[in-house]
Amino acid sequence: MSAVTPPISLRASGGLRRRRLVNKLMEGVGWTSALLAVAVLFVVIVSVAVRAWPALSWDFFTKPPALFGQPGGGISSAIVGSLLIVAIATAIALPIGILIAIYLTEFAPRSVARPIQLVLDVLNGLPTIITGIFVFGVVVIDHGQSAYAAGFALSIVMLPLVARAAQETLLLVPSALREGSLALGVSRWRSVVGVILPTTFGGVLTGAILAVARAAGETAPLLFTCSIFNPAVSTDVTHALPNIPVLIFTYSEQPDQALHEQAWGAALVLMMFVLVSSLLAKALLARSRRKLGR
């Protein structure tokens, strides 16, 4: 071994020290940004929860809104209305979305699948108030506001979400399973309905929950289709039903403290529903991915 080695430095010096500093700075920006996003989420959740707290009571969930000028009252009619509207929307969007996904993954040639995919993506990005105006034009002008018109509007919001989720899970189905079933001489439709669809149940369910969560909070499509004030609890879907998003929206525009309190309460209910369903969907997704070995 030679005794003399040239002295070299592996330490940061000069230029490198400056570059290191820039690197540290940018890492700091990354940390700060991530922290900021989390902080905003917490501030929103906490400030909604704190303000909603006084409104929450048994009556709040079981009583319809009080008549104008009277104290008390709750949001039971709006909860019922929202549930019905979202149920109608799901009943429309879920089957059609799954059918679209089956067509795109099992039948459509690439040249056909791509434009349809594009249409779905464009539908997904369409301002939802436009959806509301569309349903206003095709249903409400002639038949008046109703829960089913609102459900139809929300189904348009949900459709691309459901279709995309179903499509993604269908693509996860191992081609071995698909081919294996066809190789046994099983006809196409039996293999799709009997073998492929059942394996995608978890993924489709996840997509459906996410779409429901999204639709439940949508307000703009309801303004034109289901926003006539009607405090009573009703399940008549041929009429406008009170619902949570519109209730929050109209109350928030009023200068009345009591109504604000109710709006906060309703906002907490809505937000918790949406966040819990999103988390549930995520957990389900993780589970079904594990099952498919991914």
């Binding site: 080695t5 430095s9 592996l10 330490r11 940061a12 490198l16």
Partner: peptide, 13 residues
Amino acid sequence: GQDIYGDGVDPVE
């Protein structure tokens, strides 16, 4: 002769 895992050594360098 210098430990590349030593104190003050910059992996970038």
